[in-house]
Simulated scan of single mutants.
Amino acid sequence: MDADSISPLSLWLLLPVLIAVVAIGRWLAWPLWRLVLIWIPEFWHLLLQVPLPDTLSWRIGRRWPRFTAWITGRVDPNRFAGLPLTLIVLLALYLVSLAAGVLEAVLENEELVALDSHINQALTVMRDDRFVHLFHWISGMGHTNTLAIVLTVAILLLWAQGRLADLYGLILAAGASSTVTWIGKYVIDRERPASLTFAEALSPSFPSGHATGSMAVYGFITFVVARQLLGPRQQFEVVYWGLTLVGLIAFSRMVLSLHYFSDVAAGLLIGAFGVVAGIALAEYRRERDAEPAQP
């Protein structure tokens, strides 16, 4: 079916659908949040309390003392350099593998290229003029100039509050992810989708710089804010609405026909890797700064 033969839906139908998707997502995300932040840590704490048989524990420790000490340190839940850092490294490796898989598929898999085209064509039903203008405004929140202003303000606030660990983490998250994205754009040099709206962009398509930058900057700021809150419900609200903003910015790039689905997916993965790296740096520095000075 040609894109010209697809009629866009009315703004008054699209807006309730969008609001319903966001509301249902929030309703479904809360149980998952509780599972990840409350139930899983409690289960892990109970699991660590299960002792190995004395004979087995003694034999393992005697035969591989250094390896045993290293493993014990990696699963220690009481130090950031223990279990938290181990999980962050595993998550970072997983994000890298996903991004590499998307890149390989874009370069070699014709099925993904066809899927990108089908999704772009299917989104024609959402290209009502007023809806496109709404998403053009949302997309502007992920523009380089907007992100630069937000990043500058955040850096100044963190510096003024003396929160250097978070400041360095934010700089790493934004800097590393943006560097990877812009190198990838000009090395891969993928053409953007055919222009179906008034929106324009000059740089190559893959990966999406808006998706990368929004995830890195807004994602890390969301972490900084949520970390200061005590209740899990408050933290959930901050994280959910922060990621919803990132998701809307990424989705706007497809509605505006400025990016394919795979461009946006790769950008979000690169940005998420930047956030994970920034969190690791911030928490490492925070733990190091909290340690008592050696006499």
Rank of each mutant, 00 (worst) to 15 (best):
Leu9Cys: 03
Leu14Ser: 12
Val22Cys: 05
Val36Leu: 13
Ile38Trp: 00
Pro41Asp: 12
Glu42Ser: 10
Phe43Ala: 14
Leu56Asn: 01
Pro65Phe: 12
Pro84Trp: 04
Thr86Lys: 04
Leu91Pro: 00
Ala92Leu: 13
Tyr94Leu: 15
Ala100Val: 10
Val102Lys: 03
Ala105Cys: 07
Glu110Gln: 11
Val113Leu: 13
Val113Asp: 05
Asp128Lys: 07
Phe131Met: 08
Trp137Asp: 08
Trp137Arg: 06
Ala160Thr: 08
Asp166Leu: 05
Leu167Ile: 08
Gly169Asn: 10
Ser177Asn: 05
Thr179Cys: 03
Trp182Leu: 06
Lys185Leu: 14
Asp189Ile: 06
Arg192Asp: 01
Phe198Leu: 03
Glu200Tyr: 09
Ala201Val: 11
Tyr218Arg: 01
Tyr218Phe: 13
Gly219Tyr: 11
Phe223Val: 15
Ala226Asn: 01
Gln234Asn: 08
Val238Leu: 10
Tyr240Arg: 04
Gly242Asp: 07
Gly242Gln: 08
Ala250Arg: 06
Phe251Asn: 01
Phe251Arg: 01
Leu256Lys: 03
Leu256Arg: 03
His259Leu: 12
Ala265Phe: 11
Leu269Gly: 07
Ile270Leu: 15
Ala272Arg: 02
Gly274Thr: 11
Val276His: 00
Ile279Tyr: 10
Leu281Val: 15
Arg285Asn: 00
Asp289His: 03
Ala290Val: 04
Pro292Arg: 06
Gln294Met: 09
